[in-house]
Design a protein around this nucleic acid. Sequence first.
DNA 1: CGCTAAGGTGCTCATATGAGCGACGAATCG
DNA 2: CGATTCGTCGCTCATATGAGCACCTTAGCG
Lengths: 330, 330
Amino acid sequence: MSDESQLGLDAEHPGDLHQHDDLLIEVARRYHFQEQSKIDIARDLGISRFKTARLLTEARDRGAVRITLHRPRERWTGLAMRLKQAYGLQHVVAVNMHGASMKQLRAGLGREGALLLQQYLTNEDVLGVGWGRTVKAIADQVSTLPKCNVVQLGGIAGDPGENSIELVRILSSHSGGRAFPLYAPLVVPNEDTAKSLKGSPEISSTLDRFRDVSVAVVAVGSWEPPNSQLRMFCTRDDRAAMTAAGVKAEICGVLLDEDGNEVETPLSPRILAMTSSQLRRVPTVIAVAGHTSKTEAIHAVLRGGFANMLVTDTQVARELLAMHERTATE
Amino acid sequence: MSDESQLGLDAEHPGDLHQHDDLLIEVARRYHFQEQSKIDIARDLGISRFKTARLLTEARDRGAVRITLHRPRERWTGLAMRLKQAYGLQHVVAVNMHGASMKQLRAGLGREGALLLQQYLTNEDVLGVGWGRTVKAIADQVSTLPKCNVVQLGGIAGDPGENSIELVRILSSHSGGRAFPLYAPLVVPNEDTAKSLKGSPEISSTLDRFRDVSVAVVAVGSWEPPNSQLRMFCTRDDRAAMTAAGVKAEICGVLLDEDGNEVETPLSPRILAMTSSQLRRVPTVIAVAGHTSKTEAIHAVLRGGFANMLVTDTQVARELLAMHERTATE
DNA sequence: CGCTAAGGTGCTCATATGAGCGACGAATCG
DNA sequence: CGATTCGTCGCTCATATGAGCACCTTAGCG
């Protein structure tokens, strides 16, 4: 019958297909995530409203837009809402993971984090990516992102297969944008090494991108119990010093005390990652962390104002609310 | 502030909440999967069109409806379409799993199968569930189904954790309907045992449901190479007899030759499962099977007309098309 | 008992959207 | 070269939909 059958892949002009698909994705994203009307989308993208409509039906038919139904277990909207108001956050997701294992918990946080990312990220954003297993869980569950660049926020940490470079690679492949990895360890042996690395072209080219990051996804590490990637780089003395200095939390390589103030430590100059002042300047910082062992750390991060969106579990959310009441009334 | 905070769970009248949520799900399903207009839904369910609209926004806000975007890799719609026409099927999904491991392949088939199920199943359906790891993969990826009953189509086979009863349990919990398990092995030692079991009340109550099954999800087993759950129940003589009889495929406990004709074997009377004539009477039979080792078996099943929907991978789809050309021109 | 506040309901009217149609351009074929 | 076919585009008009409002019920309270 038809002659294009051989490969099932229509060979059009080289770039055409991808241009078309990119437009498809963009339209679908605006319609479903940004809740723009088809007429608005048409005006914004300079196409007719009929074309928008046709692209949207094509998106559905080709499986680009997928809809799933979930039976909502609780009406915990209220919980997330209260937490949002208590800490003055922009958005909170509290996923009900009662009785789940750590692995399941991470998967749950990953799912929600991926969803949030897909909904908030736009074409013009630059995505900054932290590290850790929780962030990895997000990368694993992301399906498609708007076409934006992806910047690694800190040097390599963690096992191969879940290190920061891998995360940046995965996420940029999902977005179709450029990847800016950092080919250096998260913590280097001494300050001089850090300085010389920061000066080298392939490192600084990524560091220079930090100023453009508009959305950052980062994990939160607790210091006590040891739940931070940083801890493995410390000597015993370092650790003692830091515990003495009151370090309670870690976000993106920044160490915080229980009130969310940054703590200067001997480790600080040796860290290759976004600095606290840079992090503060990122418009949207999504902190993803769960399990009650991290409640204190998350509390510190939120008090310090280092994140404006939070993905966590309901258990932690409840504890955070209680903790906030306590500190507020003191 | 508010007094309902303690549990984050608003205590309404006992059943009200679930009734509300069920309605929510039903409306969302009709709107998103069945593409009914809000006005139609309102009329069908006897509510106002405003209420439908409000339920739909609530569904989104509470995360009951989730939308994900995927970058379509190929325009292989044509492949699925051609396969659909070649074998006269109602629906074909060919997922591109090039270079994937068996585990990944199964996960991919599971995802697509789950999606298909969620889209086709309605409130009035009765879901029949086969067995095997592929069907398990579907159950694992289903999130929510319309409220329908779930019937086990054959006795227990496979390891605990992926046996048929477990599947029925999982799926019915997702649908909220009743589960009809079969507490008996798939193959019993002899015909008499089979007969007496079929007569026992708790078995026959499920067997009686077979006539009501409107949608069946089943795997396809190949006989050569050994890819059927049945094979493990055979003696060496049985196997030889069956290979000699030209058995090439197995679907839902029914053994077929290469042309899709049922083959009577010594095993047949000992099997506790839906019969071939019952299977033929099911309006919608979704066969889920991938990997090229099963191509021949799938071909036989389709030729025999035992399934009208197919979920497979692109590689198998191509082989099936080629195989169909060959048998058609002979 | 009446008053008030809150949540839920269905209305009106302006607007967004879908179905179907003819126009246009590109590729194909005689 | 002209004719035909196919796919895409944007139009019209009937219809579906959303924003905002008025109404009703319910519950809380003096």
